[in-house]
């Protein structure tokens, strides 16, 4: 069963009083919990959050299922998110997604056998002048991506 760390619990308690309503703390709390649960929100995470936040499960599930940045199934240690909206597509991002899936031998949104990688297409990341753009987990963007650059990066992450 998932249980927040002491630090995580403290952070969520702060979020509960930070906004005008306790409910507003759901979005930040899910981020905090996700970071302590290998990057995804499992059903027991929702149960635990509901208990410690004293907010109904339905309210938390409503948020969880609506927003794409909460992962509803396990993701790799390195969740590689490639923007495949217009400008990035024009810069060759779909070819990068395909190359990633072939190299890692996985389908999109799937977890690699070694649990290190997941490749996901994401919508416009707002960096259309430096595409293709890639975001790994919630880190800073990697801009002007190319297949060669991706191969080098994969080696570093392996």
């Amino acid at each position: 069963m998932f249980k927040l760390s002491k630090d995580g619990l403290e952070k969520i308690k702060k979020e509960l009083t930070r906004y005008e309503t306790r409910r507003s703390a759901i979005l930040p709390a899910l981020y905090i919990a996700q970071s302590e649960n290998d990057g995804w929100i499992s059903p027991d995470v929702v149960m635990h959050l509901s208990e410690v936040m004293e907010i109904p499960i339905s309210h938390i599930s409503e948020v969880l299922t609506f927003y794409t940045m909460y992962n509803k199934k396990p993701v790799g240690k390195h969740h590689i998110q490639v923007c495949t909206n217009v400008a990035c597509c024009m810069a060759g991002s779909r070819e990068i997604v395909k190359h990633l899936c072939t190299t890692l031998n996985i389908h999109e949104d799937e977890l690699s056998a070694d649990k290190k990688f997941t490749v996901t297409r994401v919508e416009c990341l707002g960096s259309c002048n430096t595409g293709p753009v890639v975001q790994i987990n919630h880190d800073d963007y990697i801009e002007n991506m190319s297949i060669e650059k991706m191969d080098k990066l994969l080696k570093e992450l392996q």
């Binding site: 909206n85 217009v86 416009c124 707002g126 960096s127 259309c128």
Partner: peptide, 11 residues
């Protein structure tokens, strides 16, 4: 919440 594809000024 700049999200309109191809917009990157607010960022």
């Amino acid at each position: 919440d700049e999200g309109e594809p191809c917009t990157f000024k607010d960022r």
